[in-house]
């Protein structure tokens, strides 16, 4: 069970993610962000709850829809914003962008442009922790339901299971993979069923409900820390926005307006706010104060990014290979 402070922190992180994403979209529309940017809005409860339960020494692998994961693992919104704007002060010096946001100081091994790219990497992190370092650190591997149709999903879960690696495979099932629905692409309704082939627990939960997520994740993380191996968790959720920013078909094209409205009514943040007030964990005034503080933070992050220098020309050729430790 989550204590009141945890719940408040999760609430704050969810809101930070939402406000960050809103701002990122604005910047995209202004042409300041390029390429493909995938917005996390609607799925905040999953990253924020996992982030709350993880230690700084734990690691995550992230996805193309990774801003929320980065923030939840303690990522700084100013460095993230600078990365989106391609600036030298960004997390990757401007060379990664939205799809490659990484923060090794906080155990975020990186977002990924390849669907399923983080699955095998999380297994490797599990090897380091369980076999080489023999510590009790764990790795949360985020991925979409679409990734479970890649061959590497099978290979990764199989290896993690036979070696009992401390990995939590956390599938965010938002029902779509670009324009293609789950019904079209999978013979099973629940991704968690796929755990059976690996002899590991497979759990489906409400990905928009912090309280439920907290308990499910807590026990999977405990299990991993105790050397009992991986768990496959499927959190059912929904992305509010298009697949990528600029996807004009997301509303009323391949997804009906009714379906979108139905899911918006399950807004994880509004639900959490209601719970916090009703359980007298905090009052409205405090929540408003949190929101004001976050808005200020995001504005400052944009300012930081806009004022930041572009990478130097020589940076193009740097970091292809390891040469020396950056100071």
């Amino acid at each position: 069970m989550a204590d009141n402070n945890s719940l408040l922190r999760i609430y704050e992180q969810m809101l930070r993610i939402r406000l960050f994403e809103q701002k990122a979209q604005e910047l995209y529309v202004q042409g300041l962000v390029t390429g493909s940017m995938h917005i996390y809005t609607g799925q905040e409860a999953i990253a924020a709850t996992a982030g709350e339960l993880l230690r700084e020494t734990d690691t995550i692998t992230s996805t193309h829809r990774g801003h929320g994961h980065c923030i939840a693992k303690g990522g700084k919104t100013d460095k993230m914003m600078a990365e989106l704007l391609g600036r030298k002060t960004g997390y990757c010096g401007g060379k990664g962008g939205s799809m490659h946001m990484a923060d090794f100081t906080r155990g975020n091994l990186g977002a990924n442009g390849m669907v399923g790219g983080g699955l095998a990497i999380s297994v490797g992190a599990g090897i380091t922790n369980a076999i080489i370092k023999k510590n009790d650190s764990v790795t949360v591997c985020f991925f979409g339901e679409g990734a479970t149709n890649e061959g590497v999903f099978h290979e990764s879960l199989n290896l993690a299971a036979i070696w009992k690696l401390p990995v939590i495979f956390l599938c965010e099932n938002n029902l779509y993979q670009v324009f293609t629905s789950v019904a079209e692409s999978m013979p099973v309704k629940d991704v968690s069923i796929r755990a059976i082939s690996y002899g590991i627990p497979g759990i489906t939960c409400d990905g928009n409900d912090v309280l439920e997520l907290y308990d499910v994740l807590d026990s999977a993380i405990e299990r991993a820390r105790n050397g009992q191996g991986p768990t496959l968790i499927e959190a059912k959720t929904y992305r509010w926005e298009g697949h990528y920013t600029g996807d004009g078909y997301a509303r009323g094209g391949y997804r009906s307006i009714e379906e979108i409205d139905l899911w918006k009514a399950k807004d994880p943040i509004a639900r959490m706010a209601k719970y916090i007030i009703e359980s007298a964990i905090a009052d409205n005034e405090l929540l408003e104060k949190i929101e004001a503080g976050l808005k200020d933070e995001i504005e400052k992050a944009v300012h930081f990014a806009m004022e930041s220098p572009w990478p130097d020309d020589e940076d193009l050729y740097k970091d292809v290979f390891y040469e020396k430790e950056e100071v």
Binding site: T34, G35, G86, R87, C92, G94, K95, G96, G97, S98, M99, H100, W310, P311, D313, D315, L316, Y317, V320
Partner: peptide
């Protein structure tokens, strides 16, 4: 293009 992966930053991408 330069013998480096394609960088994200529009400034560097233009350069490569």
């Amino acid at each position: 293009s330069a013998q480096a992966p394609i960088p994200y930053s529009s400034k560097l991408e233009k350069l490569t």
